[in-house]
Design a protein around this nucleic acid. Sequence first.
DNA 1: TGGGGATTT
Length: 713
Amino acid sequence: MPRKTVQKPFTITVIVQGTVIKDNYSGDGKRVSGFRRNYKHADILKLKMKARTLLDGRKKLPVFKVKDELMKQLMEHRVSVVIGETGSGKSTQIPQFLMKQIKGKIAVTQPRRVAAINLATRVSEEFGCDVGRDVGYAVRFNNATSYKTMLKYMTDGMLLREMMLDPLLSDYSAVIVDEAHERTILTDMILGFLKELLVRKRKDDKNFRVIVMSATLDADKFSAFFNKAPIFFIEGRLFHVDRYYLPHSVDDIIDSMVKSIIQVNQEQTKGDVLCFLPGQEDIDKVTSILHQIAPALPREAPMIVPLPLYAALPPQQQLKVFDKVKPHQRKVILSTNIAETSVTIPGVRYVIDSGLRKIKVWRHELGLSTLLTVPISKASASQRTGRAGREAPGKCFRLYTENDYIKLSQNTEPEIIRSEIVYPVLMLKRLGVDDILNWFWLENPGRSALIAALQQLYALNALSDSGKITDLGEQMAVLPVTPHLGAVLIQASKFGVLSTVMDIVACLSVDNLILTPPSEQRDVINAKRRETCTLGDRYGDLVMLKELFNIYNDISSSDERRIWCKSLGVSYKGFKNVLRIRKQISQYMDSMDGRKNEKERHSGVEDGNKSKNDDSNEDEIKTSVPLNYELVLKSFLKGFITNTAIGMPDRSYRTVTSGDTISIHPSSLLFGKKIDAVMYIEHVYTMKGYARNVSAIKTDWLREMAPHCLDRG
DNA sequence: TGGGGATTT
């Protein structure tokens, strides 16, 4: 073959689907824990004995009392909605009942990884098998299933991924969608796809079953969506919780929270206190106030032990909420929404609820997000209240009036109508949905949001002029990163800087990797970062990430890594995750590329002059090659061409798309610098418009990298 | 010199 300088840009069509999902599953290459190929009779006996001891407990669950009636309904209808309150046992028992009655595999989806893993672990004990045998789970980086697995707990994201590879879900004869009331984007997407399956693709398969499980009383919505599917109600097993309201509304939620905590501590008997506040800032304030005043409080009341809890908190500190305290002490946990569903803390008898939470709202017409503090819904208020009644009767103090409560909306607004939906739309396109506007949306995001998403995809070359998915779009749909970052990766491959860009993309895919240092350490840590990342100091945050990645990767011992992370205010746990994601991305890029050009590969330096990167060794991370920042940043422009701004003489920046003023966020290494043009990964609006994860670019790069979209505005 | 809720492939 006469090919010397220019090689084929990309082997686009060769997405080996089986390989992709296999790679995905093997993830970090860990073997399924506890799974053994050769079973001894004694082992099985032991597992079955254990299961038998659990049976008595199971029979006491509310769901067991209605088993026959419930199963009759589930068997008679293709779709059922099951309302099961907390403690009903629905998530563990119903799948097992179903297992005995139907042939074929059952999928149970969960919004969160830990829930999927814990449920599978519990249910396999009850069933009498090792996890990954008859009962297993599948979450990112961890697959505990085998050919024998008939009941599979999995995250919503995993089932969607399987759908992308097998739109018929032909492996399954039943899908149970759990926690549907949470209305996450992914759950909503699954429900839409299932409806499509039922009315079109598997219309005649009368044995295919869908069960929607919800904890709240919004079942009518689901029932109506699935053509008036019957609703089955199972009561829960929570203790009674008394509710108290304030006589008047308050303005200062921090003051009000502190006063309530002190009052509860003095007036109420034994039991820990869980307080819900909207965000980190409020939590830190209340925590420090409590630390200050705790010693001065009356001796006869328990000693307050304030404990903050939010996602950005280092894991070690998060775990402190589970520590036991001395008899004369009382835990006061100050938490965000994380304690509403994700973290359950034993010992809580009292809940104090600010009635607020924070949400990120995407403005698709502006391409930016805003962070708002908003009142919770009644459903959420009830969920928070329930946290006080898990072990014994409890009390819930609401820091708002009863009249305020009455005015709250019934249910939490579904995520999909306030989010960026580029990826959901790409999924639809990938599954061949042409009429996006009239798809089976449980909640239609609206015409303008859908059109904005289509335009984004078009600008990324994921869609053709006729609105069909392109080969590039197919690749983006399969990559485990946002479509924007997917476009960047594919461009980087063409530029021959894939390895470096994968490092950076992996860093960008991890939340809270670069931490905001406490104010007293801020200057020291900022200076240290600039000193460590000399190129990042010039070219911006993406280059900084690469520099940090290199150093982290070159440190051999985990102790040293930990110390290094601390000194720079970056997350150790985050970086461990970066490596896993880096590996997964690398495997996907490899499998996409196919093995066609095997012989043409050249090993060695990633210098960007070669049109095709050597990918046979992509798992080998390159930390020693010189950084070609220009090609790296140009690759990013491919995905973020609309996130650019030009520096003005007065040191402000104006966005290329709208001409609006935007400022470099103070957390950026480029903050306070005078730069001709910048590209940013995220545009957030708080007090004013801020660019986050900023890089210095040249204005002529814009024209060079600008696809068809720039002219259109 | 700002502030960041929670998920997931």
